[in-house]
């Protein structure tokens, strides 16, 4: 475990301690410190308040502050664990942790289930899937006839909704992604393996003695 000098408090003042965050995630302390460089950049891009608001989140992801989107809103809501309308550093690291290549399949499955359970009912319902499908078609300017969309939904629910109750529960989703592992492709960010090379400036701010880790 790295020893974290008190002088580092200045750098992380008001944010969770990187040694503690590293102990809770797949990241090393250095990787958490590198993520802090990314966090500082995003959280100061519109309002320099040490928190990421939705505009900053969308600006960082899509280089566009105003790009309102169903999916982006949903992901922001899942990162905003404390439901404050902003993302603090701890939640940012813990949420990104799910996308780490070494994160568990169970965590990835759980996050993707909550991602698609748009109304937070505890089920992925047909109407929600249709809404997401139409959002995707709008985004890619693809046109599909209504009956084609219904056919895709029929096939999807035929495969996933095993008890035929018209909605996909957590167990059905877990079984479905095991049969269709490509559905979790979005849940892994290879970049997270090299975060310290992407944001090397953390070295200048690092106060943690990695030797002791």
């Amino acid at each position: 475990m790295g020893c974290f000098h008190s002088t580092a408090a200045r750098e992380f003042s008001g944010h969770e301690n990187p040694v503690k965050l590293a102990s809770e995630t797949a990241f090393s302390v250095s990787e958490v410190e590198a993520l802090f460089e990314l966090f500082k950049r995003i959280s100061s891009s519109v309002v320099d308040d040490g928190l990421i608001n939705k505009e900053e989140f969308q600006l960082a992801l899509f280089q566009n502050r105003k790009k309102e989107n169903l999916f982006a809103n949903r992901i922001f809501d899942l990162f905003d664990v404390k439901r404050k309308g902003v993302i603090d550093f701890g939640d940012f690291v813990r949420s990104l942790n799910v996308f780490h290549p070494n994160a568990s399949l169970e965590d990835k499955t759980d996050f993707s289930f909550r991602l698609y359970d748009m109304d937070c009912t505890g089920f992925i319902e047909r109407q929600e899937v249709k809404q997401m499908l139409i959002a995707l078609l709008c985004e890619s300017e693809m046109k599909l006839a209504d009956d084609t969309i219904e056919m895709i939904l029929d096939q999807t629910f035929n495969d996933a909704d095993v008890d035929r109750d018209g909605k996909i529960d957590k167990t059905e989703w877990s079984d479905f992604v095991i049969k269709n592992p490509s559905l979790l492709k979005i849940m892994t960010l290879p970049y997270l393996r090299d975060i310290t090379t992407t944001f090397p400036s953390f070295v200048f701010n690092s106060e943690v003695d990695e030797i002791a880790t």
Binding site: L38, V129, L133, S182
Partner: peptide, 29 residues
């Protein structure tokens, strides 16, 4: 002759193609 019924892609495979679900934008400086 086997039936050539077309394989219907499932909705989540399509949805997963959304660029709004790709967080790698964070790391592209």
């Amino acid at each position: 002759k086997g039936s050539d019924s077309p394989t219907i892609i499932n909705a989540f495979q399509l949805i997963g193609m959304s660029s709004f679900l790709d967080l790698s934008g964070f790391f592209e400086l």
